[in-house]
Amino acid sequence: MTIKRITFLQELLGLFGLQERVHLAWISSAEAQKFVEVVTAFTEKIKSLGPNPLPAYRDAPRAALAAAAH
């Protein structure tokens, strides 16, 4: 079921192009190495994606937004 919930979230965030910021992996308690690999890779990915673009919209004037859309 977890995969469904996460897909739900990814789909919804996909409207804003943010789906890549959610990642799901199955790692058992015995798989420390895999945990490190997955978390490190995801951290790197998030860093390369940069900060969440959404808060800017809350503060940005609408005109700027409209300009961006053109």
Partner: peptide
């Protein structure tokens, strides 16, 4: 042009690229 036409089909809205989708939806929510 900048927001979302309420009468589009969902598929059309889903087809926006990440940036465009974000801009259009956030325009509406703003």
């Amino acid at each position: 042009a900048v927001g979302i036409d309420n009468h589009l089909r969902l598929e059309a809205v889903e087809a926006y690229g990440p940036e465009e989708g974000r801009n259009r939806w956030m325009y509406e929510f703003q």
